[in-house]
């Protein structure tokens, strides 16, 4: 199987990636190669259900507020801020 350029563009849109024409061409063949390789899993019939990594147990704690406000600290990493808010481009048209 080989992915079409349109398929690669569609995945890129979903993944919020902007690709150059060269990248699209490159991913067409590289992703197709990997997808072909992983298709070998179809050989395995009959399986044991989903995986759970660890025997997790419930962790209980009292319903108390323990976190301190860290607004300044966290905003320090944001590229654009205004007051105590992070500034982003407008989502709606005026």
């Amino acid at each position: 199987m080989k992915l079409t350029a349109e398929e690669v563009k569609k995945i890129a849109r979903l993944a919020r990636l902007k690709l150059t024409d060269k990248e699209i061409e490159q991913y067409q063949s590289q992703l197709s190669e990997v997808l072909t390789y992983i298709k070998q899993l179809d050989e395995v019939k009959g399986t044991a259900g989903a995986t759970r990594m660890t025997a997790a147990t419930n962790v209980m704690s009292d319903d108390e507020v323990t976190n301190q406000p860290r607004t300044k600290e966290l905003l320090a990493g944001a590229p654009l801020t205004e007051g105590d808010s992070i500034k982003v481009k407008a989502v709606f048209d005026e």
């Binding site: 919020r16 990636l17 902007k18 990493g77 944001a78 590229p79 654009l80 992070i86 982003v88 481009k89 407008a90 989502v91």
Partner: peptide
């Protein structure tokens, strides 16, 4: 948006995502 690299001259929110990740 929140931390790390951000491309400043993007024209829209979607463009910010795309340019930054690119």
């Amino acid at each position: 948006i929140r931390y790390g690299l951000s491309v400043p001259d993007a024209t829209s929110l979607l463009d910010t995502y795309l340019e930054t990740r690119e």
